[in-house]
């Protein structure tokens, strides 16, 4: 473990008019760590994730990112070219709906290869080989490399999106309900795959989920959000087995078996 956090979020606010969607959130993400942000719909967890990635400009606060290439960067003041460069090299964003993260009218291979090409890869055979390796890694039959993702099942599309994001070896991956909308059996397969990939690649991950089971399986730490604020934070087993805040207790007690 490095002794400096990869990401330091300080007093982050995201306001939509009078609504404080994210209200004074602070936390740190360390290299190799998986943090889950849990809470109900409307708690602000997805907005927080999108603000960190730069999809939404924060109203106030600071997000410090330690880049391999550029050193310490204040993301709230980062110019767009560099933000986009980071987004397609050092970061990855996994959307809840794989259709938001894939190019549906391009083949699976092209979807995986796009980030490589965006990063400057110009050898077709190498791009192809990496796409094949990644399809295999996310358990998609390599014979389907030239098929369009719209012919894939929801679970396959989600695994394809993950391959597309991870192919450039990002350090920081943000996931928005990666298992949402999938059948339970498909979810289990995806979670197991994510667990392995995160461990093998040493990824730092922020995963937003309303599913405490997902948080238990993937995350070392949990942040509980309610109405834009982090009401409780701690180790996964601390928060799930000994929740302190009334809202955390409500969340934990509402789950059949977490």
């Amino acid at each position: 473990m490095s002794d400096l956090p990869l990401l330091s979020v300080r007093c982050l606010d995201v306001r939509f008019g009078a609504l404080a969607a994210v209200d004074g959130v602070s936390f740190e993400l360390w290299p190799g760590e998986v943090v889950a942000i849990v809470g109900e719909s409307g708690s602000g967890k997805t907005t927080l994730l999108r603000a960190i990635h730069g999809f939404i400009p924060p109203t106030a606060g600071s997000i410090l990112y330690r880049s391999d290439r550029f050193g310490e960067i204040e993301l709230t003041r980062l110019d767009e070219p560099r933000r986009r460069l980071l987004a397609r090299t050092e970061w990855g964003f996994v959307h809840q709906n794989p259709r938001d993260g894939l190019r549906l009218s391009y083949s699976a291979g092209a979807n995986v290869g796009e980030r490589l090409m965006a990063a400057g890869a110009r050898h077709w055979g190498n791009i192809r080989a990496q796409a094949l390796a990644w399809l295999d890694r996310v358990e998609i039959d390599v014979a389907r490399i030239d098929d369009l993702p719209r012919t894939f099942s929801g679970g396959m599309q989600q695994r394809l999106q993950i391959a597309r994001v991870l192919v450039t070896n990002p350090r920081l991956v943000l996931m928005d309900e990666p298992t949402g909308g999938l059948d339970v059996s498909v979810q289990a397969r995806l979670l197991d795959m994510l667990r392995r990939l995160v461990a093998d690649l040493g990824l730092s991950v922020i995963v937003v989920t309303h599913d405490l089971g997902v948080a238990r399986l993937l995350a070392q730490r949990i942040l509980v959000m309610q109405r834009g604020r982090v009401v409780e934070a701690g180790l996964t087993d601390q928060v799930l087995d000994d929740p302190q805040h009334p809202y955390s207790q409500l969340l934990v007690s509402s789950v059949l078996a977490a």
Partner: peptide, 18 residues
């Protein structure tokens, strides 16, 4: 503006794949 032309090669990649 940002000279992000990876997508242009996606089209060519696809042509070769097909």
């Amino acid at each position: 503006a940002l000279a992000e032309y990876g997508i242009m090669h996606v089209k060519l990649y696809e042509d070769i794949a097909q």
